[in-house]
Design a protein around this nucleic acid. Sequence first.
DNA 1: TGTACATCAGTGAACGCGCGTTCACTGATGTAC
DNA 2: TGTACATCAGTGAACGCGCGTTCACTGATGTAC
Lengths: 237, 237
Amino acid sequence: MTDSSIPDQLTPRAQARARTQQRILELGREHLATYGAAALSLRAIARDLDLVSSAVYRYVASRDDLLTLLVVDAYTELADRVLAAHATAPADDSREQLRLSCHAFRDWAVAEPARYALLYGSPVPGYQAPAEQTTEPGTRVVGLLVRTFAAADEHIVFAPPEDATPVLDFDSVTSEFDVQMSDDAMHAALALWAITVGLTSLEVFGQFGAEPPVDLSVLFTVQIDGLLGRLGLPAPR
Amino acid sequence: MTDSSIPDQLTPRAQARARTQQRILELGREHLATYGAAALSLRAIARDLDLVSSAVYRYVASRDDLLTLLVVDAYTELADRVLAAHATAPADDSREQLRLSCHAFRDWAVAEPARYALLYGSPVPGYQAPAEQTTEPGTRVVGLLVRTFAAADEHIVFAPPEDATPVLDFDSVTSEFDVQMSDDAMHAALALWAITVGLTSLEVFGQFGAEPPVDLSVLFTVQIDGLLGRLGLPAPR
DNA sequence: TGTACATCAGTGAACGCGCGTTCACTGATGTAC
DNA sequence: TGTACATCAGTGAACGCGCGTTCACTGATGTAC
């Protein structure tokens, strides 16, 4: 898990530095899981590192800086998982791509509740994620969903949500993700995104109680399959 | 806003106590909004109350106790709003009841982001809400949705989410809310619940960015109307 | 109605804890000649 | 290849801050006779 390839030709000092840097990220993830983002403390990390508290400042500019590092790290890992799952499906099977993407999203969240909370839960008091570093990794997953619906939009006619749907201007979204698609396809994409985040948050944040009344992984499957079908992407045969 | 009726026939001391008790709750709400739940501090509240820090313990057993008070307070206010909106619709119009309920949910959340975060966001580190006090107010909203779908289930045939839907045992849920309904109606209720929480959390927790690309209140309307229609509760002609 | 006693809101000091961040420093590692 | 100098990881002390909770206390309010 740790051996994220530190190049041999680096100077010993540089290797040690890289190792410590990695270790800080790992400890950050652990502390996130154990104490939550609001309680993330540089001093506690220094302690676990067997360093004096001021030494951590050789590696990290401030507490907020570490938080940003962890946010980017989490968004990146989550997006990597989702993209990998997406790529597993046949290139022409939008439904399967979306299904697998949503499941990968939930699976990661369930496995990493604290990091999920950092991304999709309450904002950390007193901390504002810097948009420049955070936006790109943070939009990879939605971007994938939107792009997949745009692709599906070429062979499928998505129905409008209702008969008289108010018109929204999605131009800034389609241009951000560099796609062309109907408003109906965009609404479908957002519906899937919202239900995925909704179910995942309800589960991870404990709204189903300590002992959920039903198997939440089955429930998720049913709900996602159901919505995909209703949106116009029914299961084959 | 403050005059929550303190009975006149109470002794002056008892009246003062009631007033202080109320004031603590209000300050708690404010601090929640300003600093977040993790940073909620009895000392800070004492300061705002012009009391010495130890005096707060006359009113509140501990910090966790105050958090529980705030959780119950927030769940209660939210549920009151949603139930009131629900009651506004004609008794036989399930679609309208649900629509108004969902909108009331979002409206409250947008108006009270910090309290919403306390209920539906990341768990507060080191704090576990006591189920005995929290479950009842915390399930009023879902209960209402479920009961409304159960009522609708009597005149409407809800379609199964997909052709071959795995069977889930919802008995513990239906008996908790004291209703009878088809699994398909239950799935529909959960879909609406999930998309409501999903859209609301995405909005309140800032996932649409500082300047959302579209009007989120319109988006919410479209999405809820769309899902209600797809679930088998279309808008009247 | 007046008095003696009980209640209890609020005080002030203290305990023991944690935090982020700065700063002058030492001494090992790395590099240029 | 050996030496002189520059870099920089880690130290230790300090600043100033905040927190929850306990405890013995004072003095005003409430109550029973």
